[in-house]
Design a protein around this nucleic acid. Structure first.
Length: 435
RNA sequence: GGUAGGUUGCCCGAGUGGCCAAAGGGAGCUGACUGUAAAUCAGCCGCGCAAGCUACGGGAGUUCGAAUCUCUCACCUACCA
């Protein structure tokens, strides 16, 4: 059920080196001794890990960077440990924005299951470099407070802990910082130590914002075992316009199709800025340098074709939601944004497209365009709807409507009793008349 | 605890009795251009078809009339201690 079977086949022997690969893809923000890491990796398969905390019912596209980084390293011939934070999720990583509200243990347990399933999708559990899923609750829960303080706590120095960027920022904020969140870095450090003991894990990867937590583990291992282990941080993914990556008007772009529909997911990627798309292709797809050069050329020479955006959206959607969902979404997007006659689109495609975009069932006589815009959620109020119409931004079945009192005719209904409403260039919604 | 200043629409910020649904900027929306991109230009940007209604921290007043004046409560800031 993995999205790229051909890349699975690539999991064979040690190759040139994942570090070079990660580097040209722009995936290394900082690392511990890189030369040492290179030679360790060249000497044979290593075991590495990356953790995912259950802070939500699903992972999001920010986590995808980590998942794919793990995957790339596995394909280069190393053994991944996917860690789900059953324990750390109960504590909460300190954020700049203030103290977290603790989630109930039941909630966290449920999210752990969901997230484990998601992580599993991106790793290969067969063959010589088979992945393994671990849960830090397994070694954290049995630990007594006394053992924790004596065996682990003794290795952590307050000065070092207080110096962490987020910790000091929080201490200086009005919110302050609870002991609970302050302890988080110890737990994460402990994970690395535990995985080092159990599986010989020598590398932790993570986002650059996790750097403090990553090094917390490398330092703990050095103190306890005297061994040098490594940490590798991926950069924060940015957008050329300066806004936050991974958000849309409706919020976070989740990996769970129930939270972000495959259609919305695909639309997110296809709307990528020209200035960002090449970088995203490197980070989020498995295309090689040659393929990316071609796409970069396409963006420069034939920007209107949007080849790079299509490639990006297609690849990532396939990776996350599978080929079938992607085919459907591409057909849907084509139907809604295509130049062709919308009435020519077959009913299943149209229904699927509108379901993805947002479909509302109505009964009774057909309402006016003003009401339709409100019912479908395209306009927030009657005034808003009228304004849009006056501005020439309201369309039914790709026909501009300029009369606010316009009522669509039964003859306007497409197959299945559907009407395609569009506000402006790219906001589409459907209404279906149920008799 | 004392004194002074502040709290305006999604955000910033003008406005000190009628001309204020409230300047200006940002965000956002729409159009033109176009490529479901960016930039640019233009329009829009509380609710209501409208009459009108609701709004300038909360409450109570003064006035024909208040975002603007008075009282009071809450919160924030600065200086004093």
């Amino acid at each position: 059920m993995s999205a790229t079977p051909e890349s699975k086949a690539a999991v064979t022997e040690l190759t040139g080196g994942p570090i070079d690969e990660l580097q040209w893809r722009g995936l290394i923000a900082q690392s511990t001794d890189e030369q040492a890491l290179r030679s360790v990796m060249a000497a044979g398969p290593i075991t590495y890990y990356c953790g995912f905390d259950p802070t939500a019912p699903s992972l999001h596209i920010g986590n995808l960077v980590q998942l794919l980084t793990m995957r790339r390293i596995q394909e280069a011939g190393h053994l991944p440990l996917g860690l789900v934070g059953g324990a750390t999720g109960l504590i909460g990583d300190p954020r700049m924005s203030g103290e977290r509200v603790l989630n109930s243990t039941d909630t966290v347990a449920e999210w752990v299951d969901r997230i484990r399933t998601q992580v599993e999708k991106y790793l290969d559990f067969d063959g010589r470099f088979a992945a393994r899923i671990v849960n830090n609750l397994d070694w954290t829960a049995p630990l007594s407070a006394i053992d924790f303080l004596r065996d682990i706590g003794k290795h952590f120095r307050m000065g070092r802990m207080l110096g962490k960027e987020t910790v000091s920022a929080r201490l200086n904020s009005d919110d302050g910082l609870s002991f609970t969140e302050f302890s988080y870095q110890i737990l994460q450090g402990m994970d690395f130590l535990e995985l080092n003991k159990r599986y010989g894990c020598v590398l932790q990867t993570g986002g650059n914002d996790q750097w403090g937590n990553l090094t917390s583990g490398t330092e703990l291992i050095r103190k306890v075992t005297g061994n040098e282990v490594h940490a590798l941080a991926t950069p924060l993914i940015t957008k050329a316009d300066g806004t936050k990556f991974g958000k849309t008007e409706s919020g976070t772009v989740w990996l769970d199709p129930a939270l972000t529909s495959p259609y919305a997911f695909y639309q997110f990627w296809i709307n990528s800025d020209d200035r960002d798309v090449d970088r995203y292709l490197k980070v989020f797809t498995f295309r090689d340098a040659e393929g990316l050069a071609e796409l970069a050329e396409a963006t420069a020479g034939r920007p209107h074709a949007r080849e790079a955006q299509r490639a990006l959206a297609g690849d990532v959607t396939t990776l996350v939601h599978g080929q079938a969902a992607t085919d459907q979404v591409i057909a849907a997007s084509g139907a809604l944004f295509g130049r062709g006659e919308i009435a020519a689109v077959d009913e299943p495609t149209l229904t699927a497209a509108l379901s993805e975009a947002g479909l509302t069932d109505i009964t009774g006589p057909l309402p006016t365009i003003v009401e339709l815009l409100q019912i479908s959620g395209l306009a927030s109020s009657g005034s808003d709807a009228r304004r849009t119409i006056a501005e020439g931004g309201a369309n039914i079945n790709n026909q501009r409507i300029s009369d606010p009192d316009h009522v669509p005719d039964v003859g306007d209904l497409l197959a299945g009793g559907l009407l395609v409403l569009r506000r402006g260039k790219r906001t589409v919604a459907g209404v279906r008349l149920r008799s």
